[in-house]
Design a protein around this nucleic acid. Structure first.
Lengths: 215, 215
DNA sequence: TAGATTGTTAATCGATTAACAATC
DNA sequence: TAGATTGTTAATCGATTAACAATC
């Protein structure tokens, strides 16, 4: 949130510094929280002045690993895989999709976004050659576990799993599951409440009309 | 988490009931927390016995709105839109993609997943006819704001935004942004630490060897 | 020197957990 | 009746926030 607010400020306004108070307003949190959070990065503010926007931006991006290049392997070049391969948001933040893998002979050899799809068996080689450090799984559920095991076997320690199934890996591997339908569940939960509140208000209004004493 | 654990139990084992203790172990939380959380749904347990798995499953799915049908509009039928349109996870949970919209004449009229892509201008009609209650935006960033406004104008109160840009809507609309690169940022953050710890251990090991007294 | 603002300590608040009476 | 387990109260813990000395 702080990163986004600071990027916004750096772009739109010519200001050099920002106070914890201002950053708090932009990020929608308490000013004391801003100062406490930023103090974990180090002591980058100046008393009586505030924080230098550019310097703070650099420190935050560095801490989040956004100044580094993270060559990434994408496994499963179906619909979702192709969409992810062409998703600009990754490369903009240093997550360069550096190699594509599949097991389907019809797909292997195809050019997708400037890369040639390779067979999953070549993963280990590619991890060593291209220094891949993150793997993205976009396979069907039945193939996800195998993909994860091949990634771990090749030495990859961070996995992002888009497949609908859960995969199990050793606890020293960082794995995160993206379940898009969870977001929709949250929305429908809100929607239910919105509808329930609207219905209650409408019922209330009718009762009031009914019970209103005659003039 | 409880839903997933209960589904697992219902599938694999023949057990009828589950205790807060067991459910806590499966979901990886404290048993008191399980009881407190479930108590918000109502009093569905039996003292001395536990919770009836099937009944609890029903109550949780009902509370999450998973027993309802949520006809959903998908706007932007590019790579990501097509991937989402064919993503089974949505329909499995009652989020039926019921209408597709775009503004590109080359795309309008195409058949995608059994639906014909319609012009965005027909959205309002479709919302009324098909009872659409949720909108998914998968447009390029420049088109996201317009898509959101058309959804709100048509009466849709819940929006899931996959576009890389932030859109602004009135505060009574439920909107959530999905930023896939955030997940990768988290992973790279872990990765940095994993690497740093490994480097520190290696340095330690070398020092120990160097400082080890001669036999 | 006066005003502004950080970095940090202490107070407050809310969430988690332990404990236990209620009850199957 | 004895053992098991819920639902809820009270205690604990950790995160957020207010307050303020340090200092630009």
């Amino acid at each position: 949130m702080y990163l986004r607010s600071l990027l916004d400020m750096a772009e739109t306004r010519g200001a050099i510094t920002v106070s914890s108070d201002e950053l708090a307003r932009l990020a929608g949190v308490n000013a004391a929280k801003v100062r406490k959070d930023l103090s974990y990065l180090g002591s980058y503010g100046t008393r009586g002045v505030g924080y230098d926007i550019e310097y703070l931006l650099y420190q935050i991006t560095r801490e989040l690993g956004l100044t580094q290049d993270w060559p990434t392997a994408l496994i499963g070049i179906g619909n979702l895989g192709r969409a992810l391969a062409s998703y600009k948001g990754f490369s903009e933040r240093g997550f360069r999709i550096a190699a594509l893998f599949d097991v389907d002979d019809d797909v292997i050899g195809q050019q997708v976004g400037g890369l040639t799809v390779r067979h999953l068996d070549e993963l280990k080689e590619s991890v060593n050659e291209d220094g891949l450090s993150i793997g993205i799984i976009a396979t069907p559920p039945s193939a996800a576990q195998e993909a994860a095991e091949k990634l771990v076997d090749a030495g990859v320690k961070s996995i992002l799993n888009f497949a609908p199934s859960v995969v199990n890996v050793s606890p020293d591997v960082n794995i995160r599951k993206v379940d898009l339908s969870i977001e929709l569940q949250i929305l429908s939960f809100y929607e239910q409440r919105t509808q329930a509140i609207a219905a209650a208000r409408e019922a209330n209004r009718r009762l009031e009309i009914k019970h209103r004493p005659p003039r």
